[in-house]
Design a protein around this nucleic acid. Structure first.
Lengths: 231, 231
DNA sequence: CGGAGGTTTGAGCTTCGTCAAAAGGTGTGG
DNA sequence: CCACACCTTTTGACGAAGCTCAAACCTCCG
């Protein structure tokens, strides 16, 4: 699955086929940037000046439409790169990156990046791979949203989030993110009302237990069935 | 706008900042591949073995869902690269590429590609840029489909197609593609019935003239208004 | 305790998908 | 050149999914 966060910096796709020593050199050129909950690493349509790797906290990537609607494209958790678009020249960020809690990220500015790419061409190849995964993910999500019902899309999203940030508890897997119904709605392209109704229904079926900004998956297999069942 | 086809090979993003001489060398390493209408350059989930640049004909990029539904992601016209995912290692094609008419494409196989990337690191940087544009396009289309009505999505798509392949005629701009209602439906994520109804409505308003696998835009401004109007 | 923000639920309605049937075009073989 | 088959398109009727709006409820926190 694309965008699986990794636990060690060295495992990032970006560092594929580089030696420990090379990676150390690259990491040395980064600076650290801390921001508070609610602040932005960058805003949509800003010129893409830097590439980030989140090492602590949680970041929301959102996109606004011309008519003011918003959708939540992704939640970034450590250790995951974001703002990879800065690896290409003269682009602007297609999304905004907002911290949902206090965050720390490694940052490489544009000029440093182009030096690094010159010195370690393998990094550019790795970047292509990262971007290729992004393309695949969004093509697939596009196809999903174009062809599938809300219930299934929601089930898939919750499973995806559980996979990404799920924490095992005695009673089931808890999605470890402060996600409101509104957030979930923006992720699957629906309204908070439909999300609420769907979760209530699942709760009455014993599949999950939903609370305020909290979801506990009691019966993952049931969700998988909804996510994949024919019809 | 991303994915604008270019008229000369040298203008491809892939060849940015390379000299004429370098480009000539790169082109020399390509082979040509002709295929007939209906045949495939590659199928979804095949290992990504080659990168293509279409020089003649038209190619459909489609994606199938697990439950057999299909969506049409893009129509490729000359001169446009496709299968860029092969520039990254060990990927599979996320889409199928089928010729809608007799086609010619330049082809670079995987091994040749990795040699080229080693010799011309700038190519990898350019590839990142291409992929970044793809990501942006699909993020945006994802947002569109998640937040907007069919009518607006259809208007946008037709304008996009007109921009890409439109031909001026005395009476208006003709979309120069053999696109059935079904094809259009698959591109915007709806059904052929809804497309037909919408086009009929536009025709009665004098915005377009629709025929069998043919659309003539009489009043582009009207479509733009539908594509962008608030509400 | 009170307020703010998150959540649930209901009622009504719009949009769009589904199914069916008929009409219009296009190409082929006699 | 006509007849026929086949495909695309149109249109209607119906129903379901999901959106909108409103109101009440819950939960957290100062």
């Amino acid at each position: 699955m694309p965008f699986q966060p990794v636990s060690r910096l060295e495992d990032l796709t970006l560092f594929n086929k580089l030696t420990e020593e090379e990676i150390r050199q690259i990491l040395k050129t980064a600076r650290q940037q801390h921001i508070q909950a609610g602040e932005f690493y960058f805003m949509q349509d800003d010129p893409a000046e830097a590439f980030y790797v989140l090492t602590k906290g949680k970041v929301r990537l959102t996109q606004f439409t011309a008519d003011g609607q918003q959708i939540l494209l992704r939640i970034i958790v450590p250790v995951t790169p974001f703002g990879a678009v800065a690896l290409a020249d003269h682009e602007t960020y297609p999304v905004s990156a907002q911290a949902v809690e206090a965050c720390t990220a490694l940052v490489w500015g544009k000029t440093v990046l182009s030096q690094l790419l010159g010195r370690f061409p393998q990094m550019a190849v790795n970047a292509v791979k990262i971007m290729a995964e992004h393309v695949q993910e969004f093509q697939q999500r596009f196809t999903e949203i174009a062809t599938q019902r809300v219930e299934r899309r929601l089930a898939r999203m919750i499973l995806r989030l559980a996979h990404q940030t799920g924490v095992k508890t005695p009673r089931g897997v808890e999605v470890n993110l402060p996600l409101s119904r509104q957030d979930l709605a923006e992720m699957v392209g629906t309204t908070l009302y439909t999300v609420s109704r769907t979760l209530s229904q699942w709760e009455s079926q014993g599949l999950i237990q939903a609370g305020r900004e909290r979801i506990l998956i009691l019966h993952p297999h049931g969700l998988v069935k909804i996510a994949e069942e024919e019809t």
